[in-house]
Design a binder for these strands. Structure first.
Lengths: 329, 329
DNA sequence: ATCTCGATGATATACGAGTATCATTCGATA
DNA sequence: TATCGAATGATACTCGTATATCATCGAGAT
């Protein structure tokens, strides 16, 4: 700013005013300042501005994973919704490790992030303490629960899994097996699993250890084949397999296609997520549609509202899900 | 820091030293300071530190898109490689618009980003000027060319498309059609297209307007079906179709599977990208394997080296690609 | 007893902007 | 001609951390 002041022959304070309170400066003066700014290529130092203004125009976002997942849609949605407001995304990938999330939160706060958007409700105690003392908006995304830190945006994972399970039961399947990821530090996986269990028991079905199979996170398409293969090798074959993630479901479907197993005649397959591929498979796949991008946009919108002064109301926004019943069941 | 100083009974300068030059402070004193830091929950203000140190421990990253693409792998690779060094990612999604990239660069510089990682070589003039004056490392990723701003990490898009084209020619295909995205503001698409053209003409093949079909960015899996359908409806059907993006190729493949078109007997299909699904399709797909995550890690590694004082050498690092010959050709 | 060195402290300044307070200049208006 | 207000300027202080310079104190070495 000092350089601009000298080059334009105007005082430092006038340059500052031209930038911060343009209405107090004569139009001609403003134009003159803008001209020298362009000539000099002056770019304000936002770190200095941040120091005074106590804000950074940055919003911290934590996702568990980005590759081949709806979290990429989510992050893109957040970024695009924030950009028009001059907010940038500070990104962190936690790999489903709460300690990494905590570390990310710590650096977000240290960098004066204006708000923090997290995935899920699984946080370390230290992270909760940090967030309690943090005065900006905090959004927990991808699930809905009662006890939110500040606000939440997502869908009811429990209800989604339960609804699909009920559908499978009503459809007449007798031996339903659920395949899910580890519930450790993953409230989404936990809620989905519980949704399956609750729907089953509510229908009088027994849920034994053989009804639930676990795969390792991150869920890959490659894991689907071996999983369904081992299930079909059981003495008592399941007649329906409900995958709590889309990629293994797709992998299972493709394995069946390549190995002469008929879907849904030999075994029905349902997924969770509805990646675009699922509808286009030779046997279009029944699945729970999740709109990751929409969750991201909603999370960003909620954040911006709060930043613009909307009151704290511990909102939990449910963007919903939708069962996509197709031919695989 | 002032609070920590008062609470611990030690002077401000000692607290500062304990944090910045720990070796100059007695271990007991250090422990005492650490204790009060923990008690108070003190988190240093990195905006203030940044103002003095002229660095921010943030690295700006621009990707054209994140959803359903290898750029998500790329971004994850960058983030994970930077994290152990205490660097965070400032993310921007440009949507293939150089103006958005320019705007992102401007804010990265304003926020004192230590380095900038871009996708591709298509920048606005203003962006080039900004980057010329910028003193941190700049990495252009996802392609290799001669005139780099600072350094580049990627693979030779031209060579990759040419090699696949040569393979198709050698395999005996007579009517090869290329399907690619718009080359406007997309050097990768342009280079791939040129690679196809060059390989064709080098083999004495004619490349007419009917040999090249264009789809809209972003390439979706949904676009593949209609594309291959219209190609097969031509009087002179192509016997091989080379998609310069993976999703439309997968879409085309699935359309063929669902519509009784035999691959590769009726038409051969080749893709570009090798998303994990491609190898698992009922007809595993021939494609060019790109390792997005590796590009991200390499870009991050190069950045870190430069930040740690490695000399500027206008490096162009080629991480390569690999033809995956499968059954679809 | 003198010197040296490690550990700590006091003071001042810098980083780049934002802003409060008070002063000055100039032209328009009554 | 006196007054007012818009436009601009000068000065000082703030934000939170880093660091240079010089000072002080005490323990151990010579």
């Amino acid at each position: 700013m000092k350089d601009v002041s000298k080059a334009s022959g105007l005082s430092l304070i006038t340059v500052s005013r031209a930038l911060r309170q343009p209405e107090t400066v004569h139009a001609d003066t403003r134009a003159k300042i803008q001209k020298t700014i362009d000539e000099l290529g002056y770019i304000p130092n936002l770190a200095a501005r941040s120091l005074v203004s106590q804000r950074s125009d940055m919003i911290g976002v934590v996702v568990p994973i980005l590759a081949s997942s709806l979290f990429a849609d989510f992050a893109e949605g957040v970024s695009k919704a924030l950009e028009p407001q001059g907010q940038r995304v500070l990104l962190a990938v936690s790999n489903w490790q709460p300690e990494k999330e905590e570390e990310a939160i710590r650096t977000f706060i240290a960098r004066q992030a204006d708000a923090i958007i997290l995935t899920g409700f699984s946080h370390t105690d230290a992270a909760r303490r940090l967030l309690d003392r943090y005065d900006g908006p905090v959004v927990e995304a991808w699930n809905t629960r009662e006890n939110v830190i500040d606000s939440a945006v997502g869908f009811n994972n429990h209800a989604a899994a339960a609804e699909m399970t009920r559908y499978l039961i009503d459809k007449g399947y007798r031996d339903i097996v659920m395949v899910g990821g580890s519930s450790v530090n993953n409230d989404q996986a936990a809620d989905r699993t519980q949704g399956f269990i609750d729907a089953m028991t509510a229908a009088g079905r027994e849920v034994g250890p053989e009804s639930i199979v676990e795969f390792d996170n991150p869920a890959t398409i490659e894991s689907g084949g071996p999983l369904i293969r081992s299930l079909l090798a059981r003495d008592r074959k399941p007649d329906a397999v409900f995958f709590l993630a889309e990629l293994p479901a797709q992998g299972a479907m493709l394995w069946c296609l390549s190995n002469g197993v008929r879907v849904p005649e030999d075994v029905a397959i349902a997924g969770f997520g509805d990646l675009s591929l699922s509808a286009l498979l030779p046997v279009p796949m029944t699945t729970v549609q999740i709109r990751g991008r929409e969750i991201g946009e909603a999370a960003a919108a909620q954040t911006l509202q709060r930043l613009q002064g909307a009151p704290v109301d511990r909102t939990v926004k449910d963007v919903g899900f939708q069962l996509q019943i197709r031919s695989s069941t």
